[in-house]
Amino acid sequence: MNVVQLGNITKTYVKTGRPAVSDLSLNIPEGAVFGLLGPNGAGKSTTVMMLCGLTRPDSGTVNVLGMDVATHANDVRKKIGVAPQEIALFPTLTAKENLNYFSRMYGLNGHELSRRTDQLLDTFGLTEKANKQVHTFSGGMKRRLNLIAALLHEPRLVILDEPTAGVDVQSRNMILSFLEKLKESGTSIIYSSHVLEEAERICSHIAIVDEGKLIMAGTRQSLMEHHQDCSTLEQLFLKLTGKNIRD
C-alpha cells in the first residue's frame, strides 16, 4: 500500500512565474523512510505544503493515506504528523503548555496525554525543560520540541521538513537516533532535506528533485547499485544533476 500518491502535480507562484514543482509524480510505500532530497529551492517545501493541504497544486492530484487532499484536507491533517521547517511553537508558553495545546487538536487528553508527553520529553532530553518558556530554549531544543508536537498522536505518517536545520550535533544525533527507532516501528516517514549524509543513515527510499522536477526515485539500495561509480548520495546527486547540493 502507498501512503502517498502524487499524480503529475504542478505549482507555480505568480511572483516567480516559473513552477516551484513541475509535473511531479511519486508513490511512497507504507513503512518507508522516504528521503525527498534536493538543494534549497528545489521545490521540497512546496511539495510538503501540498501534502498537508496547506496549498493546492495548480494541476495534478495529491492522495495521502487513501484520501484526496483536495476534498479531505482536514481529515488528512488529523492523521499525519508534521514538523515544518519553520519552528511552529508559541515562544511565551512552556514546553508542556505547547504540547497540551497541540495534543488537544488531536483529541488527546487525561492520562494518555500525560503519559505520551512525559515519554517524548524524556526521549528527547527535555524533561528538565518541561516547565520553561520556549523562548529560553536553544535552537536544537526548539527543533526537538517541534518534532515532539508532530508525534504526540502517534500518526501513521510523519512529514519532516529539514528537521535538523540549524541544530547542534547533540540534537542532530538525538533526532536521527529516534527516527531510526521510529522506522523500526513501521511508521512511514517523509524526510525532506538537503543533508545527504543524514539520508544515507536513515532513508530506505529516496527521490532526488531539482528545480521542481523529479530526477530519479527508488529504494536507496537499488539506486546506488545502479550507479556503482557513486559511493555516496552526494556523488549520485552530482552525477545526475551536474550540481553540488551544498551550493
Rank of each mutant, 00 (worst) to 15 (best):
S185V: 09
L176Q: 03
P155V: 03
V169K: 03
A149T: 12
V167L: 04
L157T: 07
N146K: 04
S177E: 15
S185Y: 08
L147R: 02
N173F: 14
L176I: 14
T164L: 04
P163H: 01
L151I: 10
G186Y: 11
L160R: 04
L160C: 12
E154A: 13
R172C: 13
D168W: 02
Q170Y: 14
V158W: 00
F178R: 04
L160D: 05
L176V: 13
I175A: 02
T187D: 05
L157W: 06
K181Q: 15
A165Y: 11
A150I: 04
I189D: 00
K181S: 13
K181N: 14
L152S: 04
I159R: 00
N173D: 13
L176E: 08
P163K: 00
E184W: 08
I190W: 05
V167K: 02
A150K: 02
L151A: 10
S177N: 15
E184S: 15
L182C: 08
N173M: 14
H153T: 02
I190M: 08
E180L: 14
G166R: 03
L160T: 11
Q170P: 06
H153S: 02
I189V: 15
D161Q: 02
R156Q: 15
D161E: 07
F178H: 13
E154K: 14
M174N: 14
T187N: 10
L157N: 05
S188I: 12
N173G: 15
L152H: 09
E180A: 11
G186H: 09
L157H: 05
E162C: 13
G166I: 12
M174P: 01
V167G: 02
R156L: 10
F178N: 00
S171E: 03
E162N: 05
V169H: 10
L152T: 02
L179G: 03
Q170R: 12
A165I: 14
G166N: 04
V158H: 01
R172T: 11
V158M: 02
L160Q: 06
F178Q: 06
N146S: 12
K183S: 15
L157R: 03
A150C: 03
V158Y: 03
I159Y: 09
V169E: 12
S177R: 13
Q170E: 15
Y191Q: 00
H153F: 06
F178S: 08
Q170M: 13
E184I: 11
V167H: 06
E154Q: 15
I148F: 05
P163S: 09
L157M: 08
S177H: 12
E154T: 14
L147G: 06
A165P: 10
G186E: 13
S171Y: 01
A149W: 07
E162D: 09
E162Q: 09
A165E: 13
A150D: 05
N146L: 03
T187G: 07
E180W: 04
R156S: 14
K183E: 10
L151W: 01
A149C: 12
I175P: 03
S188K: 01
Q170S: 13
G186N: 12
L157I: 08
A165D: 10
V167D: 06
L182E: 14
V169G: 06
S188V: 10
Y191M: 01
I159W: 05
I148A: 09
P155A: 03
H153R: 00
L147V: 12
V158K: 00
T164K: 03
P155E: 03
G186C: 11
L157A: 05
G166M: 06
L152F: 07
E162W: 02
K183C: 08
